[in-house]
Nucleic acid binder design. Sequence first.
DNA 1: AATGAATGAGGATTCATTCAT
DNA 2: GATGAATGAATCCTCATTCAT
Lengths: 188, 188, 188, 188
Amino acid sequence: MENIRRSDLVAATIAAIAETGSLDVTMRQIAKRAGVSSALAHHYFGTKEQIFLSSMRHVLALFGTEVQLLLGKSDTPRERVEAIIRASFAESNFRQEIISAWLNFYVQAQRSEAAARLLNIYRSRLRSNLVYGLRPLVKDHAEPAAEGIAAMIDGIYVRQSLSRSSPDPEYMVALVIDYFDRICEQHR
Amino acid sequence: MENIRRSDLVAATIAAIAETGSLDVTMRQIAKRAGVSSALAHHYFGTKEQIFLSSMRHVLALFGTEVQLLLGKSDTPRERVEAIIRASFAESNFRQEIISAWLNFYVQAQRSEAAARLLNIYRSRLRSNLVYGLRPLVKDHAEPAAEGIAAMIDGIYVRQSLSRSSPDPEYMVALVIDYFDRICEQHR
Amino acid sequence: MENIRRSDLVAATIAAIAETGSLDVTMRQIAKRAGVSSALAHHYFGTKEQIFLSSMRHVLALFGTEVQLLLGKSDTPRERVEAIIRASFAESNFRQEIISAWLNFYVQAQRSEAAARLLNIYRSRLRSNLVYGLRPLVKDHAEPAAEGIAAMIDGIYVRQSLSRSSPDPEYMVALVIDYFDRICEQHR
Amino acid sequence: MENIRRSDLVAATIAAIAETGSLDVTMRQIAKRAGVSSALAHHYFGTKEQIFLSSMRHVLALFGTEVQLLLGKSDTPRERVEAIIRASFAESNFRQEIISAWLNFYVQAQRSEAAARLLNIYRSRLRSNLVYGLRPLVKDHAEPAAEGIAAMIDGIYVRQSLSRSSPDPEYMVALVIDYFDRICEQHR
DNA sequence: AATGAATGAGGATTCATTCAT
DNA sequence: GATGAATGAATCCTCATTCAT
């Protein structure tokens, strides 16, 4: 029962944040959306910050799973980098709801030490995955290349959060891979 | 007097947002920082949303001024694109305080129609400036190229907002211009 | 089993009240201290007030037992009065934990009719015991003398509850018996 | 205005505590009794603990004033001790409402460091006043005598808080002064 | 122009209590 | 006998906003 409630509440939190477009969601809104009383939400999570952190973990895990899935199918360095790029725009992540949550988690990380830590773990992992794939391809340029690719992905997310049109993952993948291609060309 | 008060309050708002790391700043905090009563802040701005909007306008204007300044010195298409990139990381914009404000204004735009409009005006202008500069250089590719450059800039902002290290504008300019260079090469 | 649980919970209640220094202890705190669920505490006692009343009864019984014990060994009126005084500062009662509970039970009696009744029964009995012992010694003065002695005992409790130093029963017994002696002298 | 509100709220707090018979009074109850919103009570006092502390200070000040008043008219040591005793049962202090507040402030002092400090200041002053008056009369016995008198006074308060009958200050003064007399006799 | 006074509305959190199992 | 699940009600506190001065 506890697990069910917790995941219901996490889902409700993400949905509520996306709908409101901010972290100014009340525990009651979240609880109501999950079909429980706000007291129960407190019972399971203790504080609002905890429920936010759990929601972040969920979103981050979603992304991590996708990356692992695609990395598993990759053999060459080039495929590995592409895998990360494609994972970033996989359907499970690059959805309006999740995109909106991402933006707000960035904000949360500015206030909450715990949230910052969480986000930094994800960022480090993404970075090291990228560098690992890029090193054989571009040598010394791997670090800035990883930075550039990561920035472009983050930028696309932010911009999508503002856009009224629905996400176009293929276009975004093409955009980033095009950048990736150009970086590689120079080093061929 | 009115103008002084208004700009004091706008400055206080930006500072308060940066310090808090979120839009959860109270009118009292803002007013206190500006050295006035919160009643006066209301007198001048009416509502909290209005003071946020004015602060956005201020930040956007700052950026616009910088762009105009650098565009004025540019003659070739290439220079024009570079001007926009450099303006994005000019000292007046790419400061921790302003960067933090940017991120939060993105969030605000998700809730406030007026904020969204404001941000979209800036985005359109940026985009059209970029496309105008890119067209002679990359022809058909101008649109996605503009999108890519804009995304990278936005991404760098977002990432900087999380970073504890102080901004390194030259590195960022180099990163984006490197991308720009690679796009151009193909079309030479 | 039931008896064990009940006395565990009563002990936990007294300990919790002493530790908190007030009646603002939650059922959960009490239950946890007794090693059971709060639902079980309700099962056995029904309401929070009931558990408080049982705890009062326990403390009162403790005192009553002590009085009976010492009275049993007393033959003369003088010994009887001294027995009551000594019982008041016997180790089983005059312990920080119990002292703190006393003070709080006085407060509880101001709100709860049932608690007031309980405390009044104890007070009447103490009074009549004192008067019974004092009558042969001081005649008409027995009533106010009993009142004075009782007040001094209660006062010592209250003052001890605030004091950070540990209780000194012998000093307190001496203080009250000194008063008792002086009362008697006059009537010799 | 602020001073008016503050003293209204303090009065309301004392009345509310007396009526409830405990510190479980809500800010709303207090505020309503003072004829203001609970937000205003918070505006002026910040927290509930602060309003309690201010109320304690008020009651303590009341007592202090009375003591000073009566001490001012006293010339001999004997008169000084009597002054303190009489002040303890002066009409301004020994009223059901204030008596009830006293008891609850004792409880509050068990939880709140600040409340404990406040109460201890009063206790020290009372004690030193008593000792100062008693010294010439009973020499070495001054300390325990002061303790005994103070205990009796406190005890009378506690007992009165439980009693349903209205306070009888003259009887109480007589009781304590009788004790005082007997202490002195021995040393004559 | 400027502010202190004042509040209604709302939010996080806690808790005694109930109930199905 | 024992408990986890669940909640309604209540509490402290905050805040944007208004208004009289």
